[in-house]
Write a protein that binds this DNA or RNA. Sequence first.
DNA 1: CAGGAAAAGTGCAGGGACTGCAAACATGCG
DNA 2: CGCATGTTTGCAGTCCCTGCACTTTTCCTG
Lengths: 199, 199
Amino acid sequence: MTTGLRERKKQATRAALHEAALRLVAEHGLDRVSVDDIAAAAEVSPRTFFNYFPSKDDAVIGLDPEHPLRLAEALSARPTTETPVQALRAVHAAEAARMAAETELWPLRLQVVDAHPALAARLTASFARSEQLLAEWLAARTGTRAELDVQPTLLAAVQGSVMRSALHRWRAGDYTASLPALVAEGWDQVEAGFPVPHR
Amino acid sequence: MTTGLRERKKQATRAALHEAALRLVAEHGLDRVSVDDIAAAAEVSPRTFFNYFPSKDDAVIGLDPEHPLRLAEALSARPTTETPVQALRAVHAAEAARMAAETELWPLRLQVVDAHPALAARLTASFARSEQLLAEWLAARTGTRAELDVQPTLLAAVQGSVMRSALHRWRAGDYTASLPALVAEGWDQVEAGFPVPHR
DNA sequence: CAGGAAAAGTGCAGGGACTGCAAACATGCG
DNA sequence: CGCATGTTTGCAGTCCCTGCACTTTTCCTG
Protein backbone atom coordinates (compact mmCIF):
# COMPACT_ATOMS: atom_id res chain seq x y z
CA MET A 1 0.00 0.00 0.00
CA THR A 2 3.02 2.27 0.30
CA THR A 3 3.93 4.68 -2.42
CA GLY A 4 6.85 5.87 -4.48
CA LEU A 5 7.80 9.51 -4.60
CA ARG A 6 5.88 9.98 -7.82
CA GLU A 7 2.63 8.74 -6.37
CA ARG A 8 2.97 10.79 -3.20
CA LYS A 9 3.62 13.94 -5.18
CA LYS A 10 0.52 13.38 -7.23
CA GLN A 11 -1.62 12.99 -4.14
CA ALA A 12 -0.12 16.14 -2.67
CA THR A 13 -0.76 18.15 -5.82
CA ARG A 14 -4.32 16.91 -6.03
CA ALA A 15 -4.97 17.82 -2.40
CA ALA A 16 -3.33 21.22 -2.84
CA LEU A 17 -5.52 21.99 -5.83
CA HIS A 18 -8.65 20.89 -4.09
CA GLU A 19 -7.98 22.83 -0.94
CA ALA A 20 -6.98 25.93 -2.85
CA ALA A 21 -10.16 25.72 -4.91
CA LEU A 22 -12.32 25.17 -1.88
CA ARG A 23 -10.86 27.95 0.22
CA LEU A 24 -10.76 30.49 -2.56
CA VAL A 25 -14.33 29.80 -3.61
CA ALA A 26 -15.53 29.83 -0.02
CA GLU A 27 -14.00 33.25 0.42
CA HIS A 28 -14.65 34.96 -2.91
CA GLY A 29 -17.46 33.05 -4.58
CA LEU A 30 -17.43 30.63 -7.49
CA ASP A 31 -17.34 33.10 -10.35
CA ARG A 32 -14.78 35.38 -8.82
CA VAL A 33 -12.21 32.62 -8.73
CA SER A 34 -10.64 31.47 -11.99
CA VAL A 35 -8.84 28.26 -12.72
CA ASP A 36 -5.70 30.34 -13.09
CA ASP A 37 -6.15 31.62 -9.55
CA ILE A 38 -6.52 28.10 -8.21
CA ALA A 39 -3.52 26.82 -10.13
CA ALA A 40 -1.44 29.73 -8.91
CA ALA A 41 -2.43 29.10 -5.29
CA ALA A 42 -1.43 25.45 -5.65
CA GLU A 43 1.76 26.43 -7.47
CA VAL A 44 1.23 24.55 -10.69
CA SER A 45 0.53 25.76 -14.20
CA PRO A 46 -3.07 26.29 -15.28
CA ARG A 47 -2.67 23.51 -17.81
CA THR A 48 -1.71 21.06 -15.09
CA PHE A 49 -4.91 21.81 -13.25
CA PHE A 50 -6.80 19.90 -15.91
CA ASN A 51 -4.59 16.86 -15.50
CA TYR A 52 -6.15 16.47 -12.07
CA PHE A 53 -9.73 17.63 -12.41
CA PRO A 54 -11.95 17.67 -15.46
CA SER A 55 -13.59 20.92 -14.40
CA LYS A 56 -13.37 23.74 -11.92
CA ASP A 57 -16.48 22.50 -10.15
CA ASP A 58 -14.98 19.08 -9.61
CA ALA A 59 -11.91 20.60 -8.03
CA VAL A 60 -14.03 22.53 -5.58
CA ILE A 61 -15.94 19.42 -4.56
CA GLY A 62 -12.83 17.27 -4.79
CA LEU A 63 -14.09 13.97 -3.50
CA ASP A 64 -11.92 10.90 -3.67
CA PRO A 65 -12.73 9.13 -6.94
CA GLU A 66 -11.92 5.79 -5.29
CA HIS A 67 -14.57 6.29 -2.67
CA PRO A 68 -17.46 4.50 -4.36
CA LEU A 69 -15.36 1.37 -4.71
CA ARG A 70 -14.34 1.38 -1.08
CA LEU A 71 -17.96 1.76 -0.17
CA ALA A 72 -18.89 -1.27 -2.22
CA GLU A 73 -16.10 -3.25 -0.57
CA ALA A 74 -17.23 -2.24 2.89
CA LEU A 75 -20.71 -3.45 2.10
CA SER A 76 -19.54 -6.76 0.74
CA ALA A 77 -17.68 -7.30 3.99
CA ARG A 78 -20.88 -7.15 6.04
CA PRO A 79 -22.29 -10.49 7.26
CA THR A 80 -25.04 -11.86 5.07
CA THR A 81 -27.25 -12.32 8.11
CA GLU A 82 -27.90 -8.57 8.07
CA THR A 83 -30.79 -7.11 6.15
CA PRO A 84 -29.84 -4.62 3.43
CA VAL A 85 -30.93 -1.72 5.60
CA GLN A 86 -28.90 -2.96 8.55
CA ALA A 87 -25.80 -3.28 6.39
CA LEU A 88 -26.28 0.20 4.95
CA ARG A 89 -26.78 1.64 8.43
CA ALA A 90 -23.55 0.10 9.62
CA VAL A 91 -21.55 1.36 6.68
CA HIS A 92 -23.08 4.81 6.98
CA ALA A 93 -22.17 4.96 10.66
CA ALA A 94 -18.50 4.37 9.88
CA GLU A 95 -18.68 6.79 6.97
CA ALA A 96 -20.23 9.53 9.06
CA ALA A 97 -17.62 9.13 11.76
CA ARG A 98 -14.88 9.53 9.19
CA MET A 99 -16.50 12.60 7.68
CA ALA A 100 -17.09 14.25 11.05
CA ALA A 101 -13.39 13.84 11.76
CA GLU A 102 -12.56 16.09 8.80
CA THR A 103 -13.50 19.18 10.77
CA GLU A 104 -11.88 21.47 8.24
CA LEU A 105 -13.03 20.43 4.83
CA TRP A 106 -16.61 19.26 5.20
CA PRO A 107 -17.95 22.47 6.69
CA LEU A 108 -16.26 24.39 3.90
CA ARG A 109 -17.69 22.03 1.30
CA LEU A 110 -21.17 22.36 2.71
CA GLN A 111 -20.82 26.11 2.78
CA VAL A 112 -19.86 26.44 -0.87
CA VAL A 113 -22.42 23.86 -1.94
CA ASP A 114 -25.08 25.84 -0.15
CA ALA A 115 -24.00 29.05 -1.82
CA HIS A 116 -23.82 27.62 -5.35
CA PRO A 117 -26.57 25.38 -6.70
CA ALA A 118 -24.31 24.30 -9.55
CA LEU A 119 -21.96 22.78 -7.02
CA ALA A 120 -24.81 21.03 -5.25
CA ALA A 121 -25.55 19.35 -8.53
CA ARG A 122 -21.94 18.23 -8.84
CA LEU A 123 -21.91 16.86 -5.33
CA THR A 124 -25.04 14.87 -6.04
CA ALA A 125 -23.46 13.64 -9.24
CA SER A 126 -20.47 12.42 -7.22
CA PHE A 127 -22.83 10.45 -5.03
CA ALA A 128 -24.58 9.06 -8.10
CA ARG A 129 -21.64 6.81 -8.90
CA SER A 130 -21.86 5.28 -5.44
CA GLU A 131 -25.57 4.82 -5.78
CA GLN A 132 -25.18 2.89 -8.98
CA LEU A 133 -22.71 0.46 -7.43
CA LEU A 134 -24.96 0.21 -4.41
CA ALA A 135 -27.95 -0.73 -6.51
CA GLU A 136 -25.93 -3.52 -8.06
CA TRP A 137 -24.79 -4.75 -4.65
CA LEU A 138 -28.36 -4.68 -3.38
CA ALA A 139 -29.61 -6.61 -6.38
CA ALA A 140 -26.94 -9.25 -5.93
CA ARG A 141 -27.59 -9.46 -2.23
CA THR A 142 -31.36 -9.86 -2.43
CA GLY A 143 -31.62 -11.76 -5.69
CA THR A 144 -33.43 -8.95 -7.46
CA ARG A 145 -32.71 -7.27 -10.79
CA ALA A 146 -30.86 -3.98 -10.42
CA GLU A 147 -32.58 -2.26 -13.31
CA LEU A 148 -36.13 -3.49 -13.09
CA ASP A 149 -37.05 -4.23 -9.48
CA VAL A 150 -37.99 -1.51 -7.08
CA GLN A 151 -35.76 -2.00 -4.14
CA PRO A 152 -32.20 -1.79 -5.53
CA THR A 153 -32.51 1.56 -7.28
CA LEU A 154 -34.81 3.11 -4.74
CA LEU A 155 -32.96 2.05 -1.63
CA ALA A 156 -29.68 3.15 -3.17
CA ALA A 157 -31.20 6.57 -3.81
CA VAL A 158 -32.76 6.73 -0.36
CA GLN A 159 -29.44 5.95 1.22
CA GLY A 160 -28.05 9.01 -0.52
CA SER A 161 -30.98 11.05 0.73
CA VAL A 162 -30.31 9.97 4.29
CA MET A 163 -26.71 11.12 4.04
CA ARG A 164 -27.50 14.41 2.34
CA SER A 165 -30.26 15.18 4.79
CA ALA A 166 -27.92 14.48 7.67
CA LEU A 167 -25.27 16.76 6.18
CA HIS A 168 -27.86 19.47 5.70
CA ARG A 169 -29.03 19.32 9.30
CA TRP A 170 -25.45 19.08 10.52
CA ARG A 171 -24.71 22.41 8.91
CA ALA A 172 -28.04 23.97 9.90
CA GLY A 173 -27.23 23.19 13.54
CA ASP A 174 -23.75 24.70 13.24
CA TYR A 175 -22.04 21.34 13.59
CA THR A 176 -23.03 21.00 17.22
CA ALA A 177 -24.86 17.71 16.63
CA SER A 178 -23.05 14.44 16.01
CA LEU A 179 -23.13 13.49 12.35
CA PRO A 180 -23.44 9.75 13.03
CA ALA A 181 -26.42 10.49 15.29
CA LEU A 182 -28.08 12.55 12.57
CA VAL A 183 -27.56 9.74 10.10
CA ALA A 184 -29.02 7.22 12.52
CA GLU A 185 -32.03 9.45 13.05
CA GLY A 186 -32.60 9.41 9.31
CA TRP A 187 -32.47 5.63 9.14
CA ASP A 188 -34.95 5.41 11.99
CA GLN A 189 -37.39 7.40 9.90
CA VAL A 190 -36.82 5.17 6.89
CA GLU A 191 -37.28 1.98 8.86
CA ALA A 192 -40.45 3.30 10.47
CA GLY A 193 -41.95 4.35 7.14
CA PHE A 194 -42.07 8.05 8.01
CA PRO A 195 -44.67 8.07 10.78
CA VAL A 196 -46.67 11.23 11.42
CA PRO A 197 -44.69 13.21 13.99
CA HIS A 198 -46.58 13.76 17.23
CA ARG A 199 -46.77 17.38 18.21
CA MET B 1 -54.71 33.89 -17.35
CA THR B 2 -55.09 34.20 -21.11
CA THR B 3 -52.25 35.19 -23.32
CA GLY B 4 -51.40 37.96 -25.72
CA LEU B 5 -49.50 37.27 -28.88
CA ARG B 6 -46.31 38.26 -27.18
CA GLU B 7 -46.67 35.69 -24.45
CA ARG B 8 -47.61 32.92 -26.85
CA LYS B 9 -44.62 33.63 -29.05
CA LYS B 10 -42.32 33.43 -26.06
CA GLN B 11 -43.69 30.07 -25.06
CA ALA B 12 -43.33 28.83 -28.62
CA THR B 13 -39.73 30.01 -28.86
CA ARG B 14 -38.88 28.43 -25.55
CA ALA B 15 -40.42 25.14 -26.59
CA ALA B 16 -38.71 25.26 -29.97
CA LEU B 17 -35.32 25.82 -28.35
CA HIS B 18 -35.84 23.05 -25.84
CA GLU B 19 -37.02 20.52 -28.40
CA ALA B 20 -34.25 21.40 -30.80
CA ALA B 21 -31.69 21.03 -28.04
CA LEU B 22 -33.14 17.73 -26.88
CA ARG B 23 -33.41 16.17 -30.31
CA LEU B 24 -30.02 17.32 -31.52
CA VAL B 25 -28.25 16.14 -28.38
CA ALA B 26 -30.12 12.84 -28.42
CA GLU B 27 -28.92 12.25 -31.94
CA HIS B 28 -25.38 13.62 -31.94
CA GLY B 29 -24.27 13.78 -28.33
CA LEU B 30 -23.89 16.71 -25.97
CA ASP B 31 -20.48 17.94 -27.08
CA ARG B 32 -21.15 17.62 -30.78
CA VAL B 33 -24.00 20.11 -30.59
CA SER B 34 -23.21 23.77 -30.07
CA VAL B 35 -25.48 26.52 -28.87
CA ASP B 36 -25.25 27.96 -32.37
CA ASP B 37 -26.62 24.72 -33.80
CA ILE B 38 -29.55 24.77 -31.40
CA ALA B 39 -30.32 28.41 -32.07
CA ALA B 40 -30.18 27.79 -35.82
CA ALA B 41 -32.55 24.84 -35.54
CA ALA B 42 -34.99 26.97 -33.58
CA GLU B 43 -34.51 29.87 -35.99
CA VAL B 44 -33.35 32.48 -33.55
CA SER B 45 -29.99 34.14 -33.13
CA PRO B 46 -27.43 32.53 -30.83
CA ARG B 47 -27.66 35.54 -28.57
CA THR B 48 -31.39 35.05 -28.14
CA PHE B 49 -30.80 31.52 -26.92
CA PHE B 50 -29.45 32.95 -23.69
CA ASN B 51 -32.54 35.06 -23.16
CA TYR B 52 -34.39 31.79 -22.62
CA PHE B 53 -31.93 29.45 -20.93
CA PRO B 54 -28.96 30.29 -18.76
CA SER B 55 -26.94 27.39 -20.14
CA LYS B 56 -26.92 24.78 -22.86
CA ASP B 57 -27.56 22.06 -20.31
CA ASP B 58 -30.67 23.77 -19.04
CA ALA B 59 -32.06 23.99 -22.55
CA VAL B 60 -31.59 20.26 -23.02
CA ILE B 61 -33.40 19.46 -19.79
CA GLY B 62 -35.87 22.28 -20.31
CA LEU B 63 -38.25 21.74 -17.45
CA ASP B 64 -40.92 24.28 -16.68
CA PRO B 65 -39.50 26.73 -14.15
CA GLU B 66 -42.98 27.20 -12.68
CA HIS B 67 -43.32 23.54 -11.86
CA PRO B 68 -42.07 23.62 -8.26
CA LEU B 69 -44.66 26.23 -7.39
CA ARG B 70 -47.53 24.30 -8.91
CA LEU B 71 -46.36 21.29 -6.97
CA ALA B 72 -46.46 23.22 -3.74
CA GLU B 73 -49.95 24.47 -4.57
CA ALA B 74 -51.18 20.99 -5.35
CA LEU B 75 -49.93 19.83 -1.99
CA SER B 76 -51.56 22.65 -0.10
CA ALA B 77 -54.84 21.69 -1.72
CA ARG B 78 -54.78 18.21 -0.16
CA PRO B 79 -57.03 17.67 2.85
CA THR B 80 -55.28 18.01 6.16
CA THR B 81 -56.68 14.67 7.27
CA GLU B 82 -54.09 12.97 5.07
CA THR B 83 -50.68 12.04 6.44
CA PRO B 84 -47.74 13.68 4.66
CA VAL B 85 -46.94 10.46 2.85
CA GLN B 86 -50.52 10.06 1.66
CA ALA B 87 -50.58 13.60 0.31
CA LEU B 88 -47.27 13.11 -1.49
CA ARG B 89 -48.51 9.83 -2.98
CA ALA B 90 -51.60 11.52 -4.34
CA VAL B 91 -49.69 14.39 -5.89
CA HIS B 92 -47.13 12.02 -7.35
CA ALA B 93 -49.86 9.94 -8.93
CA ALA B 94 -51.24 12.94 -10.79
CA GLU B 95 -47.74 14.05 -11.69
CA ALA B 96 -46.79 10.65 -13.08
CA ALA B 97 -49.92 10.47 -15.19
CA ARG B 98 -49.12 13.84 -16.70
CA MET B 99 -45.53 12.84 -17.43
CA ALA B 100 -46.51 9.53 -18.96
CA ALA B 101 -48.78 11.43 -21.33
CA GLU B 102 -45.76 13.22 -22.80
CA THR B 103 -44.78 10.16 -24.78
CA GLU B 104 -42.35 12.12 -26.92
CA LEU B 105 -40.24 14.20 -24.62
CA TRP B 106 -39.70 12.18 -21.46
CA PRO B 107 -38.14 9.18 -23.17
CA LEU B 108 -35.81 11.53 -25.00
CA ARG B 109 -34.96 13.33 -21.78
CA LEU B 110 -34.24 10.09 -19.99
CA GLN B 111 -32.09 8.94 -22.88
CA VAL B 112 -29.87 12.00 -22.92
CA VAL B 113 -29.69 12.12 -19.14
CA ASP B 114 -28.54 8.53 -19.14
CA ALA B 115 -25.89 9.25 -21.73
CA HIS B 116 -24.49 12.36 -20.06
CA PRO B 117 -23.83 12.46 -16.31
CA ALA B 118 -23.56 16.24 -16.44
CA LEU B 119 -27.16 16.39 -17.54
CA ALA B 120 -28.22 14.03 -14.80
CA ALA B 121 -26.74 16.51 -12.37
CA ARG B 122 -28.78 19.32 -13.94
CA LEU B 123 -31.96 17.30 -13.77
CA THR B 124 -31.36 16.61 -10.12
CA ALA B 125 -30.71 20.29 -9.57
CA SER B 126 -34.06 21.05 -11.15
CA PHE B 127 -35.72 18.73 -8.70
CA ALA B 128 -33.81 20.31 -5.83
CA ARG B 129 -35.90 23.47 -6.03
CA SER B 130 -39.06 21.40 -5.60
CA GLU B 131 -37.53 19.52 -2.73
CA GLN B 132 -36.78 22.69 -0.87
CA LEU B 133 -40.34 23.96 -1.18
CA LEU B 134 -41.56 20.52 -0.19
CA ALA B 135 -39.48 20.50 2.95
CA GLU B 136 -41.01 23.81 3.93
CA TRP B 137 -44.51 22.53 3.25
CA LEU B 138 -43.84 19.41 5.30
CA ALA B 139 -42.50 21.44 8.18
CA ALA B 140 -45.54 23.70 8.16
CA ARG B 141 -47.89 20.74 7.90
CA THR B 142 -46.39 18.71 10.74
CA GLY B 143 -45.28 21.51 13.00
CA THR B 144 -41.62 20.65 12.66
CA ARG B 145 -38.67 22.84 11.76
CA ALA B 146 -37.63 22.60 8.11
CA GLU B 147 -33.93 22.98 8.74
CA LEU B 148 -33.37 21.07 11.92
CA ASP B 149 -35.85 18.23 12.22
CA VAL B 150 -35.40 15.00 10.36
CA GLN B 151 -38.60 14.48 8.52
CA PRO B 152 -39.02 17.56 6.32
CA THR B 153 -35.65 17.44 4.59
CA LEU B 154 -35.45 13.68 4.43
CA LEU B 155 -38.96 13.00 3.21
CA ALA B 156 -38.61 15.73 0.60
CA ALA B 157 -35.45 14.04 -0.63
CA VAL B 158 -36.99 10.59 -0.52
CA GLN B 159 -39.93 11.79 -2.54
CA GLY B 160 -37.45 12.79 -5.24
CA SER B 161 -35.82 9.38 -5.00
CA VAL B 162 -39.16 7.67 -5.52
CA MET B 163 -39.77 9.65 -8.69
CA ARG B 164 -36.28 9.21 -10.07
CA SER B 165 -36.29 5.52 -9.35
CA ALA B 166 -39.62 5.16 -11.10
CA LEU B 167 -38.31 7.04 -14.12
CA HIS B 168 -35.24 4.85 -14.19
CA ARG B 169 -37.24 1.64 -14.14
CA TRP B 170 -39.70 3.05 -16.65
CA ARG B 171 -36.88 3.49 -19.12
CA ALA B 172 -35.20 0.20 -18.23
CA GLY B 173 -38.42 -1.61 -19.07
CA ASP B 174 -38.74 0.21 -22.39
CA TYR B 175 -41.75 2.17 -21.23
CA THR B 176 -43.98 -0.89 -21.18
CA ALA B 177 -44.86 -0.42 -17.51
CA SER B 178 -47.21 2.28 -16.27
CA LEU B 179 -45.35 5.17 -14.69
CA PRO B 180 -47.98 5.80 -12.01
CA ALA B 181 -47.78 2.12 -11.06
CA LEU B 182 -44.00 2.30 -10.77
CA VAL B 183 -44.31 5.35 -8.55
CA ALA B 184 -46.87 3.62 -6.37
CA GLU B 185 -44.58 0.62 -6.05
CA GLY B 186 -41.88 2.93 -4.76
CA TRP B 187 -44.16 4.44 -2.14
CA ASP B 188 -45.18 0.97 -1.00
CA GLN B 189 -41.52 0.27 -0.29
CA VAL B 190 -41.13 3.51 1.61
CA GLU B 191 -44.22 2.97 3.71
CA ALA B 192 -43.17 -0.58 4.53
CA GLY B 193 -39.66 0.48 5.57
CA PHE B 194 -37.90 -1.53 2.84
CA PRO B 195 -38.67 -5.09 3.91
CA VAL B 196 -36.33 -7.87 2.88
CA PRO B 197 -37.64 -9.18 -0.44
CA HIS B 198 -38.67 -12.82 -0.31
CA ARG B 199 -37.05 -14.94 -2.97
C1' DC C 1 -55.03 54.71 -36.07
C1' DA C 2 -50.79 57.26 -34.88
C1' DG C 3 -47.11 57.22 -32.09
C1' DG C 4 -44.60 56.30 -28.12
C1' DA C 5 -43.54 52.84 -24.19
C1' DA C 6 -42.14 48.42 -23.20
C1' DA C 7 -40.49 44.05 -24.43
C1' DA C 8 -37.96 40.98 -27.22
C1' DG C 9 -34.35 40.02 -30.71
C1' DT C 10 -29.74 40.73 -32.44
C1' DG C 11 -24.61 41.86 -33.26
C1' DC C 12 -20.25 42.62 -31.28
C1' DA C 13 -16.50 42.39 -28.23
C1' DG C 14 -14.41 39.94 -24.62
C1' DG C 15 -13.36 36.78 -20.56
C1' DG C 16 -12.95 32.39 -19.02
C1' DA C 17 -13.37 27.09 -19.27
C1' DC C 18 -11.55 23.39 -21.43
C1' DT C 19 -8.85 20.37 -25.18
C1' DG C 20 -5.20 18.56 -28.41
C1' DC C 21 -0.63 18.68 -29.47
C1' DA C 22 4.18 18.69 -28.91
C1' DA C 23 8.11 20.01 -26.36
C1' DA C 24 10.58 20.12 -21.77
C1' DC C 25 11.19 17.79 -17.52
C1' DA C 26 11.22 14.33 -13.61
C1' DT C 27 11.33 9.74 -11.96
C1' DG C 28 12.14 4.93 -11.84
C1' DC C 29 14.71 0.99 -13.40
C1' DG C 30 18.01 -1.94 -15.68
C1' DC D 1 24.69 6.22 -16.14
C1' DG D 2 21.08 6.25 -19.60
C1' DC D 3 16.88 4.92 -21.42
C1' DA D 4 11.67 4.30 -20.84
C1' DT D 5 7.83 6.01 -18.92
C1' DG D 6 5.01 9.33 -16.77
C1' DT D 7 4.23 14.35 -15.59
C1' DT D 8 4.31 19.25 -16.41
C1' DT D 9 3.97 23.02 -19.25
C1' DG D 10 3.08 26.45 -23.17
C1' DC D 11 0.44 27.44 -27.11
C1' DA D 12 -3.29 27.71 -30.18
C1' DG D 13 -7.90 27.17 -30.71
C1' DT D 14 -13.04 26.22 -29.77
C1' DC D 15 -16.97 26.95 -27.38
C1' DC D 16 -19.83 28.76 -23.48
C1' DC D 17 -21.62 32.66 -21.62
C1' DT D 18 -22.10 37.88 -20.51
C1' DG D 19 -22.60 43.07 -20.84
C1' DC D 20 -23.75 46.60 -23.77
C1' DA D 21 -25.78 49.07 -27.37
C1' DC D 22 -28.91 49.01 -31.09
C1' DT D 23 -32.94 47.42 -33.99
C1' DT D 24 -37.41 45.32 -34.40
C1' DT D 25 -41.82 43.88 -32.69
C1' DT D 26 -45.82 44.07 -29.82
C1' DC D 27 -48.81 46.61 -26.99
C1' DC D 28 -51.44 50.40 -25.32
C1' DT D 29 -53.32 54.91 -24.97
C1' DG D 30 -54.89 59.20 -26.57
